[in-house]
């Protein structure tokens, strides 16, 4: 006999009434947890000061994204998602971080990241953005499954945190990282929805690759011209001034 505590879980769960798709079912739990892991890593990106650690966190986020895509492929029995997972793993967890690291070495940027907003305030802003994402997503997706709604909220949060990172970091490399993280959020949202064609994902990924290349070229150009990648110092050269 296992004594169940009064007022414990069973009654509480009955009160919430999730319908048929509730917690405690492995497919949803794992997908949910992977989404949560990505959100956690987005916060890690905001929290870290050292560029090398930021890139590590980005690589980890890519790996989790790959795992999430593979898991969705398994759950939805959609083999094309395995391809997405493979692309994510190769590009986001290995290649892009390697490229960024190479860029750091070339640019000799082993210092801490310059922040436009302090770490504490940007974390608080991040929590506020997550709350906003929840408030926005929940009413819109009223008809969808409970878990899908939460996954959408998580993915939107990752996107918003990526944007926040782009806003609050002065360093061009970190802005690229923010962009990548934003795109990770988009893919997370895409793989979570059943029946999303592969084309969309591939095109998104390709788009971001192009963006990355452009950004990389841009960084090197800035570096050559102005001897820094601090965009704050580039601002005065916008060409609009007489």
């Amino acid at each position: 006999m296992r004594p169940r505590h009064a007022g414990g879980v069973p009654s509480a769960r009955c009160a919430w009434g999730h319908g048929e798709l509730t917690f405690g079912q492995l497919p949803y739990d794992v997908a949910h947890l992977l989404g949560g892991g990505m959100l956690l890593l987005s916060f890690m990106l905001l929290y870290q000061r050292r560029i090398a650690a930021v890139i590590n966190a980005l690589a980890m986020q890519g790996a989790i994204l790959a795992a999430a895509a593979a898991w969705q492929g398994f759950v939805q029995a959609a083999p094309q998602l395995y391809l997405t997972a493979l692309i994510a793993l190769a590009a986001k967890a290995v290649l892009i971080p390697l490229a960024l690291r190479l860029a750091i070495r070339r640019l000799d940027l082993h210092r801490a990241a310059e922040t436009a907003l302090g770490i504490g305030p940007s974390l608080m802003a991040g929590v506020a953005l997550v709350a906003l994402a929840i408030l926005v997503v929940l009413p819109i997706t009223a008809g969808a499954h409970a878990i899908a709604r939460e996954d959408m909220a998580l993915a939107l949060s990752v996107v918003l945190l990526g944007m926040l990172m782009m806003i609050t970091r002065r360093n061009a490399i970190l802005q690229v990282v923010g962009l990548m993280s934003m795109e990770n959020g988009l893919i997370l949202a895409a793989v979570g929805v059943t029946g999303m064609p592969l084309v969309v994902e591939l095109s998104t990924a390709a788009l971001v690759m192009v963006l990355l290349v452009v950004a990389g070229v841009f960084v090197f150009q800035i570096r050559e011209r102005f001897d820094t990648v601090d965009i704050g110092l580039v601002e005065p050269h916008r060409g609009e001034q007489p």
Partner: peptide
């Protein structure tokens, strides 16, 4: 006890 056999599943909240 609730964590062990409450069937809470893997939750993002718990991970955080």
């Amino acid at each position: 006890v609730a964590m062990r056999d409450g069937g809470l599943g893997l939750r993002v909240s718990l991970a955080l």
